[in-house]
Design a protein around this nucleic acid. Structure first.
Lengths: 170, 170
DNA sequence: ATATTTAGTTGCATATTGCAACTATTAATT
DNA sequence: AATTAATAGTTGCAATATGCAACTAAATAT
């Protein structure tokens, strides 16, 4: 990955992308959500080069997104399963899928529909919401320094805020 | 992008990643949500190589995620703004950010906090929900063929379904 | 009129990916 | 038990993408 790691330290997106933003990685995780567990499953479904699959699986295991467990008690062969950290990517994956469904499949419609298993009801679109469930648009959001903000981040957010006020004539 | 384009045709995630899964692209879009609009803004905030920034911006404009508009009426200089298609990536970006906050910033906490502009209240975690607002876990979800499903997709989903039943002893 | 900023382009070194062949276990078959 | 096939990689090399720095050209500012 030739991308600079410089000063990505204080950005969750940059840190997340260092882990799961590499070529193939999100497709591997999609496969994992679809039920793939074994090396050959991933390889055959995705058509990914075997050496790349090796390095991706290793990285995902090292970082705790997947775990490598023996296929049976005491077996030497293993399989790759989502951990809680991996399962926690579901909202991201679904949000991305819905975006693709909406903007990139205008002809034929979504290839896969997600439904609640128990009821068969389609799920809602993933949205950004208040804690009491009102949907928010980009313009309704503001960003403020969190507990892990650096001085640099704080300064950046201050600049954003004043640019926003200026544009809205305040 | 050396990734195979083969048979990605029927997967929204694969198609989405062809557009926004390249190195830097999501960071560029994060910058856009943070208020960057000009070439130099993106370049300086990210430290990205200028030639790569050029190709990424071009691709994002060509595909309709960003638009290239004159800075003022009749000006030759232009800036890059999110389109509706681009703004629609907000849930994906926030979901990814929250994942990073949760799993990769355990020490210091989130660098940036998203709040409702009007009230200052923190937003909720992005979750997958039913249409009446109940949160769903991965195990509560099932996938069924959508309107754009190919025969291959349908077969794949059938296999998943029977594997699921087998694991759960039905 | 000159200098500076902005928005790129170009060329070359380095890093990543794709491909195909090869290896070494493990599981299945005779 | 021996042979075969499937699984899970590794290795080497060619094709691509990225990083860097210098260069260009137009638009603003002085």
């Amino acid at each position: 990955m030739p991308r600079n790691k410089l000063d990505n330290l204080n950005c969750s997106i940059a840190n997340a992308l260092d882990l799961i933003g590499e070529w193939w990685t999100l497709l591997i995780l999609r496969e994992a959500f679809f039920g793939s567990r074994r090396f050959e499953d991933f390889q055959q479904h995705l058509g990914i080069a075997r050496n790349i699959l090796t390095t991706r699986l290793r990285k995902l295991c090292d970082s705790g997104v997947l775990e490598r467990v023996p296929v049976r008690e005491g077996a030497r062969r293993h399989e790759y399963r989502l951990t809680q950290m991996g399962r926690d990517l579901l909202p991201t994956l679904i949000a991305l899928t819905q975006w693709g469904d909406r903007w990139l499949h205008t002809r034929s419609g979504a290839p896969v529909k997600f439904v609640e298993r128990a009821s068969g009801e389609p799920i809602a679109n993933v949205t950004v919401q208040t804690r009491d469930g009102r949907a928010l648009e980009p313009r309704d959001l503001a960003m403020v320094p969190g507990p892990g903000a650096t001085e640099e981040t704080i300064e950046r957010l201050r600049l954003m805020q004043s640019a926003f006020k200026q544009r809205n004539g305040q």
